[in-house]
Simulated scan of single mutants.
Amino acid sequence: MQDQTLQPGQILARGVARHLRQHDFVSIEEFVPVRGLRIDVFALGPGGEFWVIECKSSRADYAADSKWHGYLEWCDRYFWAVDAAFPSELLPAETGLIIADGFDAEIVRMGPETRLAPARRKKLLQKFARDAARRLQGWRDPGVSVLSDPSSPSRPSR
């Protein structure tokens, strides 16, 4: 996200990622566990736990999100991240809550823990590692990433 104007949800995601790093979590923004789902912040904790954090910048943004229940099966804990002005009473009480801005965040309510099945955890861990490595490689050598990414639609045929 260098050299571009960040959208409100991306600003919240940055603050969330910074805060989670203080708790020894690493994260990927806009992670796709399966086709049709895009997680705003997908975080991996020091004990191998996965957290999903959905960033909502407004009431309208929250109201338009009809897929959030589908994210529950891809994490050990689920959170909403909103700014301090967001009407947090709209958010389900059985989910976690993080108040964030572009610089930091605070976990206000811990989401309940529902442990992933070992096979799903292994699959997610592998996808997390591969996606993170692919992003790092693309940042480091952007001209080569399209040529070497087998999932890229613009990859030249041989």
Rank of each mutant, 00 (worst) to 15 (best):
E49L: 02
P46V: 08
V32P: 02
V34G: 05
S58H: 05
A64R: 15
G47L: 10
I53S: 07
A60N: 13
I39C: 08
V32Y: 01
V32S: 12
F42R: 08
S66P: 00
G47F: 06
S66Y: 09
E54L: 00
R59A: 05
A64P: 06
F42Y: 15
A43M: 11
K67E: 10
G45D: 04
S66H: 14
V32D: 01
L37H: 00
C55Y: 14
A60W: 08
D40M: 07
K67C: 03
E49A: 07
E54Y: 00
S57F: 04
F42H: 11
V32F: 00
S57G: 10
D65W: 12
R35E: 01
Y62G: 04
E49W: 03
Y62D: 07
A60Q: 15
G45C: 05
D40N: 14
A60V: 11
G47H: 12
G45L: 04
S58L: 02
V52C: 02
W51D: 02
G48L: 12
P33A: 05
V52T: 09
P46K: 13
P46Y: 05
D65R: 14
G47D: 12
L37S: 00
R38V: 09
V34Q: 13
P46C: 05
L37D: 00
L44V: 10
S58I: 04
A43P: 14
V52Y: 00
V32A: 05
E49S: 08
K56T: 04
Y62E: 07
D40C: 05
R35D: 02
R38P: 09
G47M: 08
A64Q: 13
G48Q: 13
W51S: 06
V41H: 04
R35A: 00
G45M: 06
F42I: 06
P33S: 10
P33R: 09
A64M: 06
D61G: 11
G47P: 00
G45S: 08
R35M: 01
